[in-house]
Amino acid sequence: MFFSVVIPTYNRKPILEKCLRAMEQQVLRSDTQIQGYEIVVVDDGSTDGTVEWLNAEQLAHVKLYGQDHKGAAGARNLGVEEAIGDTIIFIDSDLVVLDGFLQHHADALTEYYTTHGNDRVFTYGRVVNTCNFEQPTSEPFKVTDYSQAFFATGNVAIAKHWLTDAGLFDVQFTQYGWEDLELGVRLKNRGLKLVKCPEAVGYHWHPPFSLDDLPRLIDVEIQRARMGVVFYQKHPTLDVRMMIQMTWLHRGLWGLLSLGGLLNEHSLRPLLQWLINQGRPQLSLEVARIFLNWYNVNAVYRAYQEQQAR
Score class of each variant (00 low, 15 high):
residue 2 F to G: 02
residue 10 Y to F: 15
residue 14 P to N: 06
residue 26 Q to A: 06
residue 30 S to R: 13
residue 31 D to H: 10
residue 33 Q to L: 13
residue 37 Y to K: 04
residue 42 V to I: 15
residue 43 D to P: 01
residue 47 T to S: 14
residue 48 D to L: 03
residue 52 E to W: 02
residue 55 N to C: 13
residue 72 A to T: 12
residue 72 A to Q: 12
residue 76 R to F: 07
residue 77 N to A: 04
residue 80 V to W: 01
residue 86 D to R: 01
residue 87 T to P: 03
residue 90 F to N: 04
residue 105 H to F: 07
residue 105 H to E: 10
residue 113 Y to L: 11
residue 114 T to H: 14
residue 117 G to S: 09
residue 118 N to C: 13
residue 120 R to E: 13
residue 126 R to M: 15
residue 129 N to P: 08
residue 136 P to C: 08
residue 138 S to F: 11
residue 139 E to G: 02
residue 151 F to D: 02
residue 156 V to H: 03
residue 166 A to Q: 05
residue 168 L to N: 04
residue 170 D to N: 14
residue 173 F to L: 06
residue 178 W to M: 04
residue 182 E to K: 01
residue 184 G to L: 03
residue 187 L to P: 02
residue 187 L to T: 01
residue 195 V to N: 09
residue 198 P to S: 08
residue 202 G to E: 05
residue 204 H to D: 09
residue 205 W to I: 03
residue 212 D to R: 13
residue 213 D to E: 13
residue 215 P to S: 06
residue 217 L to Q: 08
residue 218 I to V: 15
residue 228 G to A: 08
residue 246 M to Y: 08
residue 246 M to S: 07
residue 247 T to H: 06
residue 249 L to D: 12
residue 255 G to D: 05
residue 258 S to V: 10
residue 266 H to M: 11
residue 273 Q to F: 07
residue 282 Q to P: 06
residue 283 L to F: 11
residue 289 R to M: 05
residue 293 N to Y: 13
residue 294 W to F: 15
residue 295 Y to S: 07
residue 297 V to Q: 07
residue 298 N to K: 12
residue 304 Y to I: 02
residue 306 E to W: 11
